[in-house]
Design a protein around this nucleic acid. Sequence first.
DNA 1: TTGATACTTAAGTGAATGCTTAACTATCAG
DNA 2: CTGATAGTTAAGCATTCACTTAAGTATCAA
Lengths: 120, 120
Amino acid sequence: MLNYQPTPQMPLDMAFQALSDPTRRVMVERLSQGPASVSELARPLDMTLSAVVQHLAVLEASGLVRSEKVGRVRTCRIEPETLTAVERWVAERRATWERRFDRLGALLAETESKPRKRKS
Amino acid sequence: MLNYQPTPQMPLDMAFQALSDPTRRVMVERLSQGPASVSELARPLDMTLSAVVQHLAVLEASGLVRSEKVGRVRTCRIEPETLTAVERWVAERRATWERRFDRLGALLAETESKPRKRKS
DNA sequence: TTGATACTTAAGTGAATGCTTAACTATCAG
DNA sequence: CTGATAGTTAAGCATTCACTTAAGTATCAA
């Protein structure tokens, strides 16, 4: 972690970036309830199919979504692994500050129950 | 969720966006182990203080970080709520596709153990 | 074969990002 | 008061983004 420089695109960058767009989150929401074609994904969205395809490309590049074409329809589905990696990163941060929070609580409880050795 | 249009910046947008930058993630990582001043945050980063301040502004706008100035030093700390909201969104998607996955598994198990009523 | 469907790709545009430099403004220590 | 410290703010710049329009290309159905 020391002196980390924002080198190329690491996986988490792309995943968070992909999820930062509400349109793409709607797409992920849809796909988490099951596979869908591109036009199915596009239906509730207020933009051209072309734009949706571009959003899909971002989702695929990030590894959040995978798709394959059969005939003329492309079927998309979520790639759980990547979403899990995102969840894990957040969970790790939380674990860290919760640990600290607990230590702090314990410390406070201690200095309050036996307040000897105080200088003031 | 139907016909949702990417109107103004909603909280999750800003949080995911903020986390999509590796520099900012390093800052959040640092802050999850405890409060820090701006220059402390800047120390491991290979960029000007000015840039760090700008990253900090993004983190604050997203609600991931809060800060207050005492004297000439600004102390920053994470705002757990927002990070939790991010975690929750991901967890909800996972819950959804896991539920579906389970149903699918159950269905497969059933058609395999008692394969009567098949048409082929 | 002829439409219609389901994408695909390229080019263009305005706005947002991630920096930098440069010039300031407040503390605090001696 | 006078530096040094700690941060702030504005302007500029190259890139990336989220679209759009427009012009394709493969299927599939009749």
